[in-house]
Write a protein that binds this DNA or RNA. Structure first.
Lengths: 241, 241
DNA sequence: CGACACTTTGAAGACGATCAACGCCGGTGG
DNA sequence: CCACCGGCGTTGATCGTCTTCAAAGTGTCG
């Protein structure tokens, strides 16, 4: 269970305001694979994952499904959709594993944002951060090879999930990760083999990042002016305003 | 000159509040090609373009430059950067043509958002809309061929710039548009030829969209559940909350 | 044990990027 | 006035990368 109070959404809020807001929360429990909402559904709620993780995805006309995001415990869900409720969900949301989340009615969230400037700015920070992330992601997709994408992703995951670089287990299936990276499973599979030569070993679900320099050399203009993709580390962590 | 008062940023604001905010505005005039800010610069201001247009881009290590966005008169600039001033500009901004814009200090904007709930929600709407746009864009890049991208772009431009479908002039150079679409000029050039067969004729800077159905058949799951990319039209127009 | 989802691998194919060369135009300077 | 240059746009040929098709191995769970 994730400590809800420390969510960046509530940073800087008075305990009383937080408590008042929390009274509108409902707890939702999902089992592995259960649908939280579907593409096109009306946007009625904002969520905060307290346990587990959720996959956001879209299904293309051919039935293929593209993963937009993997959201883990402690992170909010759909904070970017609350402002245009009229257009319906932009993605489908499904529990990757047994999960638990807090559900806040959109109307309450807007009300809170309208009345509490700090909360509004927190919300703005979150959405802005996601936008930045989306831009970086887009640039990566365009500029980097499959191998670079995978290396970059593994390294970021390592930081974000607080894993030990020297050895950790993949928290998601390879199929899911491949979809998240926008590539075919086959390509992902092939790519993994090549990574051995670049300081990253993957065997089954076990990953070991042996040579960090090899990863770091993939420079990316979106991440910093002249730095390396190691600065990704800061990207998802920062939320303060 | 664009009517500033009708900017979506100020929707629903009391005239007095708007006026108070506007007092902090400074007018900036840029000549064609002039730099507004560079990648990495501290984020000091939010802009509102009153006249002309601005290119946002990043320069990669090899010196190539990728266009992130083309912002035209009436639209705000950098509304997504104001919340993490510490990280510096994420893009460089340059005037595509002689332009004029209003400049608001970041501190004032934050202050306004903190005190005025409506303004805060307007800001949130803007950033959320941009995020949505970025996601759709990413999906397009991944799912559509070069020809589809160009067709889609031309059609959207037609709506966004209020052009006549039957015949209009490109407002930007082909080089710039190609960069905006994330493709090489050469590819863009070749693609244009192919479009003739699909109901879009381009000769020099003159474009005519003859067969709309041809364009419309490029369906895209990001835009609507089962609709066509014609719904792009709604995308950039909506900003209300 | 058998169904089925997940993963790996080989071979062929499609697409866009890259290399290279050329025509076009506006500006500059001799 | 003309020769030169740089930016822009077009076109042909080639190349690398990722997807697709096809097939088979691995694992889990009923």
């Amino acid at each position: 269970m994730y400590p809800v109070d420390s969510a960046s959404l509530f940073a800087g809020l008075a305990a009383s305001d937080k408590a008042a807001f929390m009274r509108h929360a409902r707890t939702r429990r999902l089992t592995r694979g259960e649908l939280l909402f579907a593409h096109g559904d009306p946007v009625t709620s904002l969520y905060l994952i307290t346990c587990g993780s959720v996959q956001l995805f879209r299904t293309t006309h051919e039935g293929q499904q593209k993963t937009i995001a993997l959201v883990k415990a402690g992170q909010p869900l759909c904070e970017d959709e609350i402002m245009d409720a009229c257009h319906g969900r932009r993605t489908s949301g499904v529990a990757v594993e047994d999960s638990e989340l807090l559900e806040f009615p959109v109307a309450r969230v807007k009300e809170m944002a309208r009345e509490n400037g700090t909360f509004a700015l927190n919300l703005l920070s979150l959405v802005a951060a996601r936008l930045h992330l989306a831009e970086v992601e887009a640039e990566h997709q365009a500029a980097m090879s499959a191998a670079q994408l995978v290396a970059c992703f593994l390294q970021r995951m390592c930081v974000l999930y607080d894993f030990n670089q020297a050895g950790f287990e993949l928290p998601y299936s390879k199929t899911l990760i491949a979809s998240r990276l926008g590539m075919e499973v086959k390509t992902f599979s092939r790519t993994i083999a090549k990574l051995k030569d670049h300081g990253i070993s993957v065997e089954g679900n076990h990953v070991a990042i042996l040579d960090l320099k090899a990863v770091g050399k993939y420079v990316c203009s979106a991440c910093s002016v002249a730095g390396s993709c190691n600065t990704h580390q800061a990207m998802e962590i920062k939320t303060a305003h």
